[in-house]
């Protein structure tokens, strides 16, 4: 797996077809993500973060610029955790994970994953009978199951209550440590971003561009310490006053 190089000179879309009003979503966005790096994209809502993830996932090919991912010969596998879980309601929890495999799904790997995500007992239930927190965990399991080269996560913990969010974040983190992938994680929660990321990229309101690109120097084992995260946050906001405007 090599770098992900993102170079988008322009992305607009039509707001209303009859009036031909355009929305200028992204202008001159240029950055490179290194393999197995955990990058948090932080920016105000509506600034185009989801659009960017969709472009990386290949769901939105209409833009000017280039996104180069990995080797030219082989397209990388991408796990996408959407903002809403997007599970197939007619499949059980387990089937929702199994379906992303082209061949026979690996039983023990899925068992393990379900166990790690504390979903083992719910594996034969249908998504509509589960809480939102559980549905999100299924959606994260689905993304992890294919052992992706790149994991795209679009505010996966939004609208979860704080204890559940903390629990799922811990699970995500321990899974990522066992099997590190390149992660692009969208959030507007700075504490969450600091607790998870190697690198923070702060994005402006649309047209989106990079405001700051900051490495997080905190050691991995210290991330669970909320005091440590808080101290870094305050220091960050002091040194970069522009950032607080984005939150």
């Amino acid at each position: 797996m090599s770098d992900i190089r993102i170079n988008i000179s322009n992305k607009t879309y039509v707001l209303a077809h009859d009036t031909e009003q355009f929305h200028h979503a992204i202008a001159d966005l240029d950055f490179t993500v290194h393999p197995q790096q955990f990058v948090c994209l932080v920016g105000p809502s509506g600034c185009g973060k989801t659009t960017l993830l969709n472009m990386i996932a290949g769901l939105d090919p209409h833009f000017e610029g280039q996104i180069n991912i990995g080797q030219a010969t082989q397209s990388p596998t991408i796990g996408y955790v959407f903002q809403n879980p997007r599970l197939l309601p007619w499949l059980t929890v387990r089937q929702n994970i199994e379906i992303v495999f082209d061949d026979k799904p690996p039983t023990s790997l899925i068992d393990n994953l379900l166990d790690n995500m504390q979903l083992f007992d719910a594996q034969h239930q249908y998504p509509e009978r589960l809480s939102l927190g559980m549905q999100r965990r299924v959606s994260i399991s689905r993304a992890f199951a294919i052992n992706p080269d790149i994991l795209l996560m679009d505010e996966p913990f939004v609208s979860l209550d704080a204890p559940t969010a903390r629990q799922v974040r811990r699970l995500l983190y321990s899974l990522w440590q066992k099997r590190p992938h390149t992660v692009l994680f969208v959030t507007h929660d700075l504490r969450e971003a600091i607790a998870l990321a190697d690198r923070l990229i702060f994005l402006s309101p649309s047209p989106m561009r990079i405001v700051s690109d900051i490495e997080v120097p905190i050691a991995r084992e210290q991330r669970t310490d909320e005091g440590c995260v808080e101290a870094f946050r305050e220091q960050l906001l002091q040194n970069h006053p522009k950032i607080s405007e984005l939150l």
Partner: peptide, 24 residues
């Protein structure tokens, strides 16, 4: 559309998309 995008991002084949995403 959300589910169709999901299928596309996980590289579902046309057959799989029809059988498991569209037909239900």
């Amino acid at each position: 559309k959300d589910l169709l995008e999901m299928a596309q991002s996980y590289r579902f084949s046309k057959r799989k998309t029809f059988l498991h995403v569209i037909w239900p």
